[in-house]
């Protein structure tokens, strides 16, 4: 879902950059008030793992492939959407600058979609669903929703950019990311949650236990 350069007019790119800078300010504030030193290894390992797993595209039908985003599981494990934002911002900056994955003009919109939308939908989705469907299913559904809703918003952005038509944009992006959301985001996030819950439950945010 990394939008390349040229897909969005520059003036619109600036708007996304401004939103990212504002959220970034609050993310830094969150970290300075809440980021426990003992959680730093989890944060760094999740960032490294997400970068690696994003390089391994999973095949889906229709000659297409996809990968997880990861903001949801970071937000759930570390107990804040801002944690998902920080990790994805780092991953996306390196992908954009060093690997040409996602443009530099579109770095703002990519951090907006995957870091902000992914982190907030994942965190609040999990929080809202946990009492209804229990912990593990809530991780799966919240992770799925985080990717799917990011993809749907991506279509709206590309519509305003004049790059995608709305209806067929929803159809193709929705179809592909429905599958990627299940096998990429939902399944892998659930596995990561179960694994960390088993080996180091003390690292998981108290809200997710």
């Amino acid at each position: 879902m990394h939008i390349p350069d040229g897909f969005i007019p520059l003036w619109q790119c600036v708007i996304y950059y401004i939103v990212v800078i504002i959220v970034g300010y609050f993310a830094v504030k969150w970290a300075k008030e809440n980021l426990d030193e003992r959680k730093i290894p989890l944060l760094a390992v999740l960032a490294a793992g997400i970068f690696a797993i994003q390089a391994m595209n999973i095949p889906i039908p229709w000659g297409t492939s996809g990968h997880m985003v990861g903001a949801a599981i970071v937000a759930i494990l570390l107990g804040s959407p801002f944690a998902g934002f920080l990790v994805l911002a780092i991953v996306l900056i390196i992908q954009g600058i060093a690997f040409g994955d996602g443009g530099l003009t579109t770095l703002g919109v990519n951090i907006f979609n995957m870091g902000i939308v992914g982190g907030f939908v994942g965190y609040y989705g999990f929080k809202g669903l946990k009492p209804l469907i229990s912990k593990i299913p809530a991780v799966f559904v919240a992770a799925f929703l985080s990717l799917f809703i990011s993809a749907i918003l991506c279509v709206v952005e590309l519509y305003f950019a004049g790059t995608f038509p709305l209806a067929t944009g929803f159809y193709f992006m929705g179809l592909y990311h429905f599958v990627i959301g299940i096998v990429g985001e939902g399944l892998i996030s659930t596995i990561v949650f179960i694994a960390i819950n088993k080996i180091r439950p003390d690292l998981i945010s108290s809200g997710a236990i």
């Binding site: 970068f51 390089a55 391994m56 595209n57 297409t64 492939s65 996809g66 993809a151 067929t168």
Partner: peptide, 23 residues
Amino acid sequence: IAALAPFLASSNPDGLESATEKL
């Protein structure tokens, strides 16, 4: 995961690229 990725990853276009090819 990083070492295995190029051997295992699908070389098909990702969701956004695939949608762009059509739209």
